[in-house]
Design a protein around this nucleic acid. Structure first.
Lengths: 213, 213
DNA sequence: GACAAACCTGACGCAGGCGTCACGTTTTGT
DNA sequence: ACAAAACGTGACGCCTGCGTCAGGTTTGTC
């Protein structure tokens, strides 16, 4: 036990009291187990006990962190959403043409999904539940953000005057399905997926514009 | 009680014995109640008792018709699928151009959804569960049928040589989201929805073709 | 009209989830 | 080193769902 100096600063990895670290670890353990369970058997069929069994905690401890399983799902999504939203939104706005706007957005979206497949499993399995729970589509309000950006594009004259909600829905719907298929491969090709879905919507928008005349 | 003839044929609506009629009615009552419950609270959270409570039958009777709730969901989908598949498939093959192929398919799809909104609610709420349960996407194998038709189109030279699975996934994904939004309106405009989604994919395919060079 | 088969019924035993709480243990501040 | 606060633990009472089955009721048959 080398006590080589009386420096008051301990040499621990996380610079915090043990209490705080344990709390963070327990919370994360619950979220991890819940992510697994929700992705595997679905939110509706999952029980608080199923989640607890995926940790080494006791039943009672769960309730020190969350009041019920719904708040766990909320926490999972709220933990992930800000980062995902920011990344996708920033990528879109970085585009200077319609092509870039679309391709950048999908690329950021797919890169995010590749990084967190367990979250994708939750979204894939529970999209309907999440939609009805939050009264909005999965993953925060990805669709609403996209709709807002589309409205901006229309106002600026870059995009034809389509129904932004519907176009956003179509893009998220198609994008998600393509993303799922991409990730079913063991070597996901983000570039190919981006190219494909971008071509669809770039061509689709041109066609809509043509027909608007 | 006019007994105006001794014709052996009874003048009943369904030409069958009472036993058979009751059986059919009970089965249908269970399927109706289950459709309601699955659409409302989701398959995972639903219990056999929730379903039974939606009928005027006793618990035990349920088990005379179905062994468990999974088989009820299967029955709901299997009751609807053949009709839906046939209609969509027939509509598509009736098309003589790519435009018609796409538009006809979506129109048949949307008309079907308009006719049975309760089924749409089930699909919308439980798409993820259904996918993982049948190991295929919702509603029979709508996506696989579409993929097969796309492959035919590619072989015949009408369509560019894209990945049929991925294109089918995108069409179903986008089409479903657009359909959901259309049906959220109280006066669903099938024509508008068909025009929109058709324009997207017709333009998208042209763009894919262009890029294939 | 009467018997048998088919069917419906709901109470039953079992299993498991829910949220709580009294107790023991660990951490913190002094 | 000690006391107090904070937290972890798991058994407990309650409730609800599961699938069954013995008994009652309805339907078909002769």
């Amino acid at each position: 036990m080398p006590d080589h100096a009386t420096t008051t600063a301990p040499i621990e990895d996380p610079p915090a009291g043990k209490r705080e670290r344990t709390k963070a670890a327990n919370r994360q353990a619950i979220l991890d187990a819940a992510t697994e369970v929700f992705g595997e058997i679905g939110y509706g069929a999952a029980t608080v006990r199923d989640i607890v069994r995926g940790t080494d905690l006791a039943t009672g401890t769960f309730y020190n962190y969350f009041p019920d399983k719904e708040s766990v799902l909320r926490a999972i999504l709220e933990d992930a959403a800000p980062d995902a939203r920011a990344r996708v939104r920033a990528a879109r706005l970085r585009g200077e043409t319609v092509e870039e706007f679309i391709a950048n957005g999908f690329r950021a979206y797919y890169e995010f999904l590749v990084e967190d497949r367990r979250l994708l499993a939750v979204l894939r399995r529970n999209a309907g539940t999440i939609r009805s729970m939050f009264d909005e589509p999965a993953l925060g309000s990805a669709t609403e953000d996209l709709a807002a950006d589309i409205r901006m594009g229309i106002a600026a004259g870059y995009l034809p005057a389509v129904d932004a909600e519907v176009l956003a829905g179509a893009m998220v719907g198609a994008g998600f399905e393509i993303g799922v298929r991409m990730l079913d491969d063991d070597t996901p090709d983000v570039d190919a997926a981006v190219a494909f879905v971008s071509a669809i919507f770039i061509g689709g928008l041109q066609e809509l514009e043509r027909r608007a005349d």
